[in-house]
Write a protein that binds this DNA or RNA. Structure first.
Lengths: 246, 246
DNA sequence: TCGTATTTAGGTCCTCCTGACCATAAGTCG
DNA sequence: CGACTTATGGTCAGGAGGACCTAAATACGA
């Protein structure tokens, strides 16, 4: 009854991980893209990723790919599963499922070209969103962006974009860059400093090129932010980007 | 370099979907469990699920399994991807990845025993949580419960548990059962009716066995709830249940 | 040396939302 | 009719957030 099934009902398939790696640099949100060095989609832009290896957990595979593509050990940044994509025809080589991951980190070094990546580079997300990406990677990128924007609201992951220690203004710029509109500096400070364990003052301060020195903070222990960071600027009440049919 | 890899780098693996199906009945949250009718874990309790078939998308596979196990066509209920589990030794038959789904629906009919399920039945979640489940299904169930609890806060999915039309008290009982503590009826009504497009009045009312008749509502168009439903009862500030290493 | 520009830090007012109540309405049951 | 139960609606105080405004601390230039 089912084509391509083995006697025990299993269907042989390949499983990959793909990573949406975001960082904030030069007042813009960037995503790491590679130019594919082999078919299919040779020469096209794609998200970094690769096959899950035999003894490997999914998180391990994501961390390994992260290290291979960026030279960063993933313990410094935020990593979470996004969603798994498995449309039957999404890979011309055969049935392939990909577990998409979202990675968020501070301004990362310019990546080295990996094994199967001809080149790897940081691309502003607005540029990437209007590009053609291999496979279904454009959809994955969009979902990653939606997830990142949503998570800024009710979690403290914004701090994952800041190299420690950081100033309140650094943290505010993360929100402004990812949400795409300015926040009131005064109200933002009040919100962040009064929230329990979002940021902890170090007691030190840093003098910028111009302006008054800013107090330095480091991440607190809180993961959730309650009440959430308000995001009232116009584009509100959009449909939630989650998964399936419902 | 890698054992069990084909020449092109792929590792043959099986992909399944498993479903955490929640419903509210008799003032308690229930989850659908099956007793496995074949090895491995024959005779043990497990989440319903099965292999993704050849031409099938992941969502399609989840909907098919849902129909097979409960006789319900999934378009009446909320369905979303939870997370993918792929620990190397999670299935003794060989490398198997499972895409876990979360399904939420109104008091569903008693399920029919499916093809590979000896028996299927609704189990109170507190009972299920203290049971032994096959594979890593207990972890999946816990994550599904965490996700459901969290989603009640900032989305309108609670209405997916109510057969339409429903009363405000019906909706409130969903929150109370899933969160595990009572909510103030008056404040809950104010919150729900003033939130934009959470519920829409039908103009009709229903007389219960005892007490004043209650106005009937149906689901509004909103998916997100802003500001969120407050969940201040003690167990607050717990670590977020999300995915990976971070 | 003394303003000026710039950025941080902190305060004020007002409005909305929420928690904790209380009061009333509209049914059923004895 | 009166007791009970549930639904509906209102009040009041406290907290959080948006829209401001003021002061502090630095670099720079006249």
């Amino acid at each position: 009854m089912n084509r391509a099934l083995k006697h025990d009902g299993t269907m042989p398939a390949a499983v990959t991980v793909d990573l949406v790696i975001f960082t904030v640099r030069a007042a813009a949100l960037h995503v790491l893209l590679i130019e594919r060095g082999m078919p299919p989609f040779e020469g096209e832009l794609a998200l970094p990723g690769g096959y899950v290896r035999a003894g490997e957990d999914l998180d391990q595979a994501a961390l390994r790919e992260l290290a291979e593509e960026t030279g960063i050990n993933g313990h410094e940044l935020h990593l979470e599963q996004l969603r798994t994509f498995g449309a039957p025809e999404r890979d011309p080589r055969g049935r392939t499922f990909t577990v998409a991951y979202l990675a968020l980190g501070p301004d990362l070094p310019t990546p080295v070209a990996g094994t199967d990546a001809a080149t790897a580079c940081w691309v502003p997300v607005d540029v990437a969103l209007s590009s053609e990406l291999a496979f279904d990677h454009l959809i994955i990128l969009k979902e990653g962006l939606d997830r990142a924007r949503a998570k800024l609201e009710y979690t403290t992951v914004a701090a994952a974009f800041c190299r420690q220690p950081f100033t309140i203004a650094d943290l505010r710029r993360v929100y402004e860059v990812i949400w795409g509109f300015p926040l009131d500096p005064s109200n933002f400070r009040r919100k962040v400093t009064k929230a329990a364990h979002f940021v902890e003052p170090t007691g030190e301060s840093r003098t910028p090129e111009i302006g008054r020195p800013a107090a330095l903070y480091r991440r607190g222990s809180a993961e959730l932010l309650f009440p959430p960071m308000p995001r009232s600027a116009d584009g509100e009440h959009e449909v939630q980007p989650s998964a399936a049919t419902g």
